Computed example of a mutant assay.
Amino acid sequence: MRFDPPRPRSDDERILPLINVVFLLLIFFMLTGRLAAGDPFKVEPPRSATEGPAAAQEAVVLLGADGRLALDGLVMERPALAEAVAGRLRQEPDTPIRLKADGRAEATAVVEVMELLRDAGAAKLQLLTVPEAR
């Protein structure tokens, strides 16, 4: 039996499988790239001079510039929000409530929501802000 030596592969033959793998990985990451659900409406938090570590998200209340409210991504009215927060706090009393208010929201609206959360039983309330650019 006589075997011919393998012919040398050209550069094109060596790089084509690599291109195919990279292309498939690109498509895979494009399709699976969305890891977290976004907020139901756009909220731009106000700027802050201080910066703190991010804590685990327990309950996040969103307040839009137009006064819309949401709890953990679910849009709801004020009475429903108060009842939902009170129900959650009955189950886990030490749950921190995080308020993410739009920077363009009226200060009185932010205070009203904070009072609503206090009346619902929130003992720990964090107002989320974005650090100022220096």
Score class of each variant (00 low, 15 high):
Ala56Pro: 00
Ala36Glu: 04
Pro46Lys: 13
Leu26His: 09
Glu44Tyr: 02
Ala59Thr: 12
Ala54Gly: 10
Asp66Tyr: 03
Gly38Arg: 11
Ala37Ser: 11
Ala54Leu: 14
Leu31Asn: 00
Phe28Gln: 06
Ala59Trp: 10
Ser48Glu: 00
Pro40Met: 05
Ser48Asp: 06
Leu69Glu: 07
Arg34Glu: 09
Arg68Pro: 01
Ala56Asp: 10
Pro45Gly: 10
Gly64Met: 02
Phe41His: 03
Val21Glu: 07
Lys42Trp: 05
Pro53Met: 02
Leu63Phe: 05
Gly67Ile: 01
Thr32Leu: 08
Glu51His: 01
Ala55Val: 13
Leu69Phe: 04
Phe41Met: 07
Glu44Met: 11
Leu31Thr: 00
Val22Pro: 02
Lys42Asp: 12
Val22Gly: 09
Val43Met: 11
Val21Ile: 15
Gly33Glu: 01
Ala55Gly: 11
Gln57Ala: 14
Val21Asp: 04
Glu51Gly: 03
Asp39Phe: 12
Pro53Tyr: 06
Leu63Asp: 01
Ala65Val: 04
Asn20Tyr: 13
Ala37Phe: 06
Gly64Thr: 01
Ala54Ser: 12
Ala65Asn: 02
Leu24Pro: 07
Pro53Gly: 06
Gly33Ala: 06
Gly64Pro: 02
Ala56Glu: 08
Val60His: 04
Gln57Trp: 02
Phe29Asp: 02
Leu25Ala: 14
Glu44Gln: 10
